[in-house]
């Protein structure tokens, strides 16, 4: 009997997400966002999603909010880094169309860490009390007494996503994941989520991981439920070793979010139509594969 491949198409992967699910999204800023599934969820019209995005999320959260799929966001940061505030998040939050839970980096990371270690919560070292964040989300940041010292500590509940979706540059078809660049919190997302999906640019051969590369496999196959393999699987965000972020796409988004949503999210029916709309010139322009001799590179 042959080992089972976990490779499925993007529509089937989106079907793993149900209305009302708590969905974790990997990457950070405009890097390693699992955009093909995000666009598919937006087109499919999921409702009432509760997002636990990466600790500095931008475009994937924008697309899901702009498409009306989101009810709540656990927000450590939603913005567009050097491109400024996130317009759809801002509008939805200011008009109370979505519920924003103000949290922080320790909340998202230790919430996932507690879930992946099967712990009910994680206490924090004292100091968090000096911020005002707890007063914004008192139901999330509760306190617990250390049974050893008797001291009170702020606690963070285990956050177990129904579905976690991350991007990795490479993966094998069984689900062994190679994060060739930064791992961000994506190892925790795959460990903590009930259903864990990886979107990848490249499927490596079946015998690749077990050929002396066990240290490169950041997350093992049995923590991954499904794999979606597509060219430019993170575009317009970056993929380590493959391509950089597409800054013109981000500029275009900020300039006219509604037109951008129509052109790149609602109208293309699949990933290939999306790539056609982006165009060869722009896609090739993001590649970080170096075709120049090294001596010329410093001039670039």
């Amino acid at each position: 009997m042959n080992r089972r491949s976990k490779v499925i198409d993007v529509a089937s992967a989106a079907d793993l997400v149900s209305d009302g699910d708590l969905v974790a999204i990997g990457g950070i800023h405009a890097h390693a966002a699992p955009m093909p599934i995000i666009r598919e969820l937006a087109r499919a019209g999921r409702r009432n999603l509760r997002l636990l995005p990466n600790v500095s999320a931008g475009l994937p959260v924008e697309v899901l909010i702009a498409a009306g799929t989101v009810a709540e966001v656990y927000t450590a940061y939603v913005g567009l880094e050097d491109f400024g505030l996130a317009p759809a998040f801002r509008a939805a939050a200011e008009s109370s169309t979505i519920v924003v839970h103000d949290v922080d980096e320790p909340f998202t990371i230790y919430g996932l860490k507690a879930a992946s270690a099967n712990l009910p919560f994680m206490p924090l070292p004292r100091g968090h009390e000096a911020t005002g964040t707890r007063s914004l989300s008192p139901e999330l940041f509760r306190t617990v007494v250390d049974p050893y010292s008797g001291n009170e500590h702020v606690a963070i509940p285990a956050m177990r996503p129904d579905v976690g979706i991350v991007h990795a540059p490479r993966c094998d078809r069984f689900g062994n994941v190679f994060f060739d660049g930064p791992i961000y919190q994506d190892d925790l997302i795959l460990r903590a989520s009930r259903t864990a999906i990886v979107v990848t640019d490249e499927i490596v051969p079946d015998d690749y991981a077990a050929s002396g590369r066990h240290k490169e496999v950041t997350v093992p196959s049995f923590m991954v439920s499904a794999v979606v393999a597509l060219p430019f699987a993170a575009h317009p965000t970056s993929s380590a070793g493959h391509y950089g972020r597409d800054e013109r796409m981000l500029e275009d988004y900020v300039r006219s979010p509604e037109q951008w949503m129509a052109r790149y999210v609602s109208e293309p029916q699949d990933h290939h139509q999306y790539l056609e709309r982006v165009g060869v010139e722009r896609l090739v322009g993001t590649l970080r594969v170096d075709h120049q001799p090294r001596a010329d590179r410093s001039q670039a």
């Binding site: 940061y77 939603v78 505030l85 998040f89 801002r90 939050a93 200011e94 922080d104 980096e105």
Partner: peptide
């Protein structure tokens, strides 16, 4: 909020 900001990130 009059202007919704991005969030507290790592300022804690």
């Amino acid at each position: 909020l009059r202007v919704r900001g991005p969030g507290t990130v790592g300022l804690v």
